[in-house]
Design a protein around this nucleic acid. Structure first.
Lengths: 334, 334
DNA sequence: CCTAGCACTTTCTTTTTCACAGTGCTAATA
DNA sequence: TATTAGCACTGTGAAAAAGAAAGTGCTAGG
């Protein structure tokens, strides 16, 4: 159990380090608290003993440890009101009746990325949670057409396919078959159903049924496994701690990875509204913090995620995410 | 006019520098050519006088100048055969009957990026060259639906919109109106036509016509202006000359820029098959080279672009692009 | 329990030194 | 006349040395 003064000191160090990214010395603190630097130093030594602070070298100032950040987040962080500026900008988005609900989410995440210089991620439902809602085609010319697949969660994917020597009416019939027989199936399982339920039927009356079947099979087989949108990847470059190419590469690779959804998703619920995973607590990177919340509206459910350096402006991001989550859930049915 | 030996020297320097990214000294060259380093040095001085070579400092070896690369590309580069390995990998893609034509292009560019560590760009036709082919909707639930827009060039875009209190049949009627009256219009001009041709009609019989109109208006008004795909952005990180965060940031910003299409597109045709724009010759970045070719098939036309450091493996990229272009144009109608 | 004072440590920056790679020039040579 | 050997010179990069700055831990006294 920390004394009040220790808490005070830890808090100052965390906030100061977040602001300037420089180890914090005892002098800076004794200005704020009314006591000498020597006193602070012995307190800092105690906090280090507890694993809440770290030194970068024997005679450096202190830096919060991962445990230190965690303590701050759990016990010290005050729920800060959003700055008037942040508030205003977000409200403009949510009160813009021109914007569709969906765009509001995307726009607000984009705004968060811009304002904070962190990276945000919008995570829709996974493919196994999506079922086939409808498939349709648009013929472009004799040989080429576009197949459009829509899932019940409103996820859309399309593909350009070319089917020379296949009668367009056969294609249409096949589409009808799919729409009649397979709609409602989880996207994951569609290609399987195609093989066992559709293929045998079209084999009977379509000349080039092999070609036709393959085309549709591919559409579903390569269906993107996740509905995920990463916004502001390059922001990582703007932070002091990522000042060398290897680190930056490592993180950018993670962001680009198709698997990022699972990295974020694997995180077990902590139960509360907004979850914070610091450093090793998350699967993205030991040097990063992930702040995450989920939302649910009649139309859609998903997760909003903000990823930044451990030295992150926790208060602000939490306030922003809370605001957005609330607005999404309330305005979802406007 | 250069002497044969000067050409020889320039060529060696360009190739060597491309390989190792280190200024090339006279000793290295006199091994290859049978003469002393002093001779080479006076030749190098002459080439520098002509602006084809540069020094990094008074007593360094030589580095090709922009003009030097240009001379190499225009006069010295031999059309190299592709390596067996490159050839094989690409052929696998183009001979894979599973893959749709469209995917071949994307896959081969992806492969180029991976093999060369440069960035490639697939540039489809601009929005003003696309006309509306068809619009369709998929209702998701009472209030929400998806609008799908397809252009004659096979470009597809979709948008989730919510229209509470609007009768789905009114929406369908509106879609029919659009499909009957506006199909064939350049995408750019659709929102205008909506206003003057569709809006007055639906105003008569649709209660919430304002909402409905706005929704469709937005779909078209925000239609992506370019059909562009940038592959392997992060490859820039792998090159020696981009070893600091500012440079990397600058370039990555360019890649992310929605305007990248125009940066590449503005380039005036040089008339030949494959165009090379070195450093200041291109609009992307003075430190980069852009190699570009266009293709045209019955289904689609567009540009293939490879972007990398000026110190780029010109021979290889040209060979790769030539191969792909040829395969696209021949196999486009398979 | 707090604080003033001081010796000590590490980093960071600057300066010095040194070997190296490569140049330009000159005078001799084929 | 073109080439070459020889040599003085120059900028770079790495390593070593020196000094300043920031901050700590400890001790003794209030």
């Amino acid at each position: 159990m920390l004394t009040e003064r220790q808490k005070e000191i830890l808090k100052i160090i965390v906030l100061e380090y977040i602001k300037l990214a420089k180890p914090v010395g005892s002098n800076l603190i004794c200005d704020t608290l009314n006591c000498s630097s020597a006193t602070i130093r012995s307190e800092m030594a105690a906090l280090e003993e507890l694993g809440l602070l770290e030194k970068t070298h024997t005679s450096s100032g202190r830096v919060p440890s991962e445990k230190g950040y965690r303590y701050y987040v759990d016990n010290l962080m005050e729920i800060k009101k959003m700055s008037a500026e942040d508030m205003l900008k977000l409200q403009i988005i949510f009160h813009n009746n021109q914007l569709q609900f969906n765009d509001c989410v995307a726009e607000s995440l984009k705004l968060i990325s811009e304002m904070t210089n962190y990276t945000s991620i919008k995570l829709g439902s996974a493919s196994h949670e999506n079922t086939l809602k409808e498939i349709s085609i648009v013929p472009l010319n004799d040989d080429n057409l576009i197949v459009i697949v829509v899932t019940n969660m409103g996820y859309v994917e399309h593909k350009n396919i070319s089917l020379p020597n296949v009668d367009i009416n056969d294609v249409k019939k096949t589409v009808n078959l799919i729409n009649n027989m397979i709609v409602g199936t989880p996207i994951d399982e569609v290609s399987e159903k195609l093989e066992f339920e559709i293929k045998p039927i079209i084999a009977n009356y379509v000349e080039e049924h092999e070609k036709l079947y393959n085309a549709f099979y591919n559409v579903f087989n390569n269906f993107a496994s996740k509905n995920v949108d990463v916004i502001g990847k390059r922001n990582i470059l703007k932070h002091k701690e990522f000042d060398n190419i290897e680190k930056v590469s490592r993180i950018l690779d993670k962001f680009e990875d198709d698997n990022i959804a699972s990295l974020v998703d694997e995180i077990k619920e902590r139960g509360s509204d907004i979850n914070i995973y610091i450093g090793k607590e998350n699967n993205i990177d030991d040097d990063m913090t992930v702040i995450e919340t989920s939302y649910k509206t009649p139309q859609e459910e998903g997760k909003l995620v903000v990823v930044g350096p451990k030295r992150m402006d926790y208060d602000r991001v939490v306030a922003l995410l809370e605001f957005i989550k609330e607005n999404i859930e309330n305005q979802g049915d406007r």
